[in-house]
Nucleic acid binder design. Structure first.
Lengths: 80, 80
DNA sequence: CTCTATTTGTACGTATGTATG
DNA sequence: TCATACATACGTACAAATAGA
């Protein structure tokens, strides 16, 4: 599932970003939980968290403690 | 209370399994709640839950949302 | 019927240790 | 020395189901 030459966390970041940009994950709706992403990818939770943190830093998602991680409105995305 | 070389969650799993197999916890009766196990062991709830989840995976107990976790009948136990 | 307490379920936040390249 | 990656462990928050007063 993952190429060996690129960090897995970065590949997961790009994968999720693609699903957001394609509209598969809609603004204001949650992306899969960390637990679900761990199950689906086989990665460790820390690695999944690193991928989601990068998405957050780039304005693609925001997280609410105890609730989940949600897709940001398109204008929040930092495309730089 | 816990050995340093084995994960605490696994040690708690084995401890509870021992109480089930010895008959201290009887089939169809509840085991201590997560909260009680936290108090008794000093572990975090997440760690206690991991121990109970392992017990569930092995067929030793089943949980009912809002009610508790109960000892399974012996024939459900996966001894493999 | 409503309120409350208890209990399990779900989910994110944080920290530490170990191993590998 | 550093980034990546996995595992363990504690903390905090919110949700849902159940039972009883």
């Amino acid at each position: 599932m993952f190429r060996p030459d690129v960090p897995k966390w970065l590949q997961l970041t790009e994968l999720l970003k693609g699903r957001i940009e394609s509209g598969e994950y809609q603004p204001r709706y949650p992306i899969p939980s960390e637990h679900q992403l761990v199950q689906e990818t086989g990665l460790a939770r820390t690695t999944v968290r690193k991928a989601v943190a990068a998405l957050r830093d780039q304005g693609y998602v925001y997280s609410v403690h105890g609730l989940g991680t949600f897709v940001s409105p398109p204008e929040d995305r930092k495309t730089s």
